[in-house]
Amino acid sequence: MIRISGLSHSIAGTPILRDIDLTIPRGGITALIGPNGAGKSTLLSLIARLQKIQTGTITVGDLTIGTASDQDLARTLAVMAQSSHVQARLRLSELVSFGRYPWNRGRPGPQDHARVEQALERFGLIPLRDRFLDEISGGQRQRAFAAMAYVQDTPYLLLDEPLNNLDIAAARDLMSLVRDMADTDGRTVVIVLHDINYATAFADHLVVMKDGAIAAQGRPDQTVSEALLEQVFGTRARVEILQDRPVVLV
């Protein structure tokens, strides 16, 4: 469980997050949605202790952000950042194996190699394993970074817009892998999604943000509505119920 209470954040005097109280349940997929600039990435980076908390507290499981050690956190929480401008020429298998760093501190043992092999297999990266990162497509890159977060073997996984630049097949593939991590491995996934239809299709829990605050949250079918789209995104789109779930007609 991730508990956030009284969290406020501002950058250069501009408030980015305003007094957020939020509990993200253990297990399943929680999708964060909201317009650009709502503060989703900022919230995620504060949970991942990538920025210093200014006001408020965050606990992940029984670790408190700000006091827990880097190593404990790295074994509890994996992050896949929104965009990775990695200029290093690393082979894909090397990149994935760095996800094991919190466990082996750079001295991989047989079980680390086994985990990496399994991740490459699960994410369909075996044929690409010896390619350099600048020799693969955007979708393959995203999958590689997801695999890297996966081998970190953490109970919590934070993904910031992992579907960026992916075509529909790659996006659905990646989402089913994420779904599988939640269902089979019992991981708690917090994922920022741009496309509300993906959120309603794959998430168990929805958190809607606007202007640095939580605008709504709950089960996807009870949260997404034409009224919400108008209120949060300022757009009038029709929402139809298809197979028991809301679908936004764009």
């Binding site: 990695v86 200029q87 760095f98 760093y101 919190p102």
Partner: peptide, 20 residues
């Protein structure tokens, strides 16, 4: 060397993996 390579993935990525 390993920690420098992690740093080349970006400061955030390195920190998230527990690198000081």
């Amino acid at each position: 060397a390993d920690r420098l390579t992690l740093l080349s993935l970006g400061e955030d990525a390195a920190r998230a993996l527990g690198v000081n």
